[in-house]
Simulated scan of single mutants.
Amino acid sequence: MPIDAAKALAAEPRSGEISWDRKDVLLYHLGLGAGVPATDPDELRYTLESRLHVLPSFATVAGNGSPGVISGLSMPGVDVDLARVLHGGQSLTLHRPIPVEGTATATGRIAAVHDKGKAAVLVMRTEVTDADGPLWTNDAQIFVRGEGGWGGDRGPSSLPHSRLRSSGGTPTEPPAGEPDRTVEKRLREDQALLYRLSGDWNPLHADPEFAKVAGFDRPILHGLCTYGITLKAVVDTLLGGDVSRVRSYTTRFAGVVYPGETLRIRMWRQAGAVRVAVSAVERDDAPVLADTVVEHS
């Protein structure tokens, strides 16, 4: 069996030093589409080093995103085909604001392995600390098609990807009523090519032939790119542009996004949180992100 759950869970955590600087932060923000209009003072907070703040979702790529989704696939007990892998969901907890430049220790491990019958879900946890203490904790849900069925723990009933709904997952509906804010974001045709420069080199997002093998008409956008674009929309519209207010950010990747499409980002205010639903406008509002919550101060 390609996934040995017991071995994966028992494996020693992997730790390594990561570092980032202003250029990494600027590149990440540009990969999300920041800087339009280029002279907008609100956008300059993402694109000009003298005014720079760090969007919290940068935590998913800091140090080139390692350890992360790809490194999790090389952990003991895990041996899978990259073409069968999808990123099912992501949770981020901020312990304090991310500095513009930094060096830290990232420790990664497999925190859970779920048997969904027709697939397996690995939860890859990364904890990052620097000299001043904890910075952030990332949980990435890695969905591996065709690797379930060994009789293991099924985990949460909500499945991490819409392609699995036939296996019994129940997607959560967005809140009732009209959203407090709606933002539409048109993606560049080369959005995935820009975003991958921050460290996610999976050919699914660039190579048409690889995308076909994986079952897609053409390369798809990184789920974490949509994740970052969505958080930026929430910060800019409902949190007064203050990135330090974000406490945590969770989502489930409910469907694919193709570069060049338009994202419709709907936001509902709640006590200490913003609920979000994201869809692809050109495909009849096909769901893209679901079960999405930004907790804030």
Rank of each mutant, 00 (worst) to 15 (best):
P160G: 03
T182G: 01
A280N: 00
V234P: 12
D217N: 15
V243Q: 02
T292D: 00
G168S: 00
Y195K: 03
G148E: 04
H87R: 12
D285T: 08
L92C: 08
L86H: 08
A214K: 04
R165A: 12
A83H: 12
H29S: 12
H222I: 13
D42T: 14
M267H: 08
S166A: 10
A211C: 14
Q270D: 15
V235G: 08
T60L: 10
G16M: 14
A119F: 12
A59H: 02
L231T: 11
V54L: 06
D79N: 15
E12D: 13
G117C: 13
A176G: 13
D284H: 04
G255N: 13
V276E: 09
E17D: 07
R84E: 15
H95A: 14
L194N: 05
G16W: 00
A277Y: 02
L86K: 13
V243M: 08
T137F: 01
T39N: 12
A112E: 09
R283A: 10
V113I: 13
T230G: 10
D285H: 11
G102K: 04
G33H: 06
E282D: 08
P259M: 05
D236C: 03
G77H: 00
L193K: 04
R245D: 07
A112P: 01
G88L: 00
I142L: 01
L73T: 13
D132Q: 09
A34I: 11
G108D: 07
L231S: 11
R125F: 02
T47W: 12
G169T: 08
Y195L: 09
A104Y: 07
T237E: 15
E295Q: 11
L55V: 14
Q141W: 07
Q191Y: 08
V278S: 06
G77F: 01
K232V: 10
I110D: 05
R22F: 02
R45I: 03
L55Q: 05
T172S: 15
T137S: 06
P134F: 07
E209Q: 15
P56Q: 02
V256Y: 07
V36N: 08
T170C: 07
W201Y: 08
V278L: 01
A176R: 13
T60M: 04
D81K: 11
A62C: 05
G117N: 10
F216H: 15
E101A: 15
G65V: 11
L159S: 10
T126A: 09
H53Q: 15
V234R: 03
T250H: 06
E209H: 11
G35T: 07
G168I: 02
R283Y: 06
G33M: 09
S162V: 09
P203H: 03
S15I: 02
R125A: 08
S167N: 07
